Simulated assay, not measured.
Amino acid sequence: MEEQMGGSEDRWKGSLENITEMASNLDSLQKLLLKKAVFVEEDTFSRASLVSEQARTIKVLEQRVQTLERELDAAITAAAHARSEKRQAESSQKAAESRAHEVTKELENTTKVFKLHMEELRGMQEQISKRDNEIKLLEAIIQTLGGKERLRKTGVNE
């Protein structure tokens, strides 16, 4: 691709040099005609007029070529900038995806830990409930035994 651009660029430069040389020749011919006021035959005059018109056309085309070259340079620069922005956006997206993956994994781990704690709390709650029932049973036994003791003590005193 670069070889094609280089060859194309060389041809443009050569063409521009030829055009510049033709313009210089025309200027010289025009100055000569003005100074000497030479009358030339119709054929020579028409050729000179044609060359003069071609020189003007060439100048316009040169300007157009320069404008197109500037536009091409601007387009190349814009494309490079767009590629750079695209790479940066892709990099940002990958970083965001990676962070989202990390957060998801962290949430999953937290959920697992929470489930384990909940199971542990349920087990402790069951133990507490079991012991509470045992305490109530023991209190009932104590009250029952305590009631019989009172009855015995009151019966002995009577």
Rank of each mutant, 00 (worst) to 15 (best):
I141V: 07
Q66V: 06
R150A: 02
N25P: 01
A100L: 12
E149H: 01
V156W: 05
E69L: 12
A82D: 11
E17A: 09
D10S: 13
D43A: 10
G123L: 09
I128F: 08
I19H: 02
S15T: 06
M1A: 11
A96R: 09
T104Q: 04
Q125H: 01
N18V: 01
I135G: 00
K86F: 08
F45Y: 13
K86L: 15
G7M: 10
E106Y: 04
G6N: 14
T154K: 05
N133K: 04
A140W: 03
M124A: 14
K112F: 01
M118H: 13
E21F: 00
L72Q: 08
N18W: 06
K94Q: 14
M22H: 07
V40N: 09
G14W: 04
R64E: 15
E134T: 00
H117S: 10
G146W: 04
T57F: 13
A23H: 01
I58H: 15
E85F: 05
S8P: 00
E17K: 12
L16V: 01
A89S: 03
K115V: 10
F39P: 00
K36N: 10
R131Q: 09
A140C: 04
V60M: 08
G14Q: 12
V113P: 00
K31F: 05
V60E: 14
E108K: 10
A95H: 02
E2L: 04
E120L: 06
E97L: 03
Q66K: 13
T57P: 00
G14D: 05
A80Q: 12
K153S: 04
V156Y: 05
E53N: 15
S15L: 08
E120M: 04
R150Y: 00
Q4H: 07
V51E: 11
E97D: 05
K94E: 07
R56S: 15
Q4E: 03
T111R: 12
T110Y: 02
V113K: 08
Q30M: 12
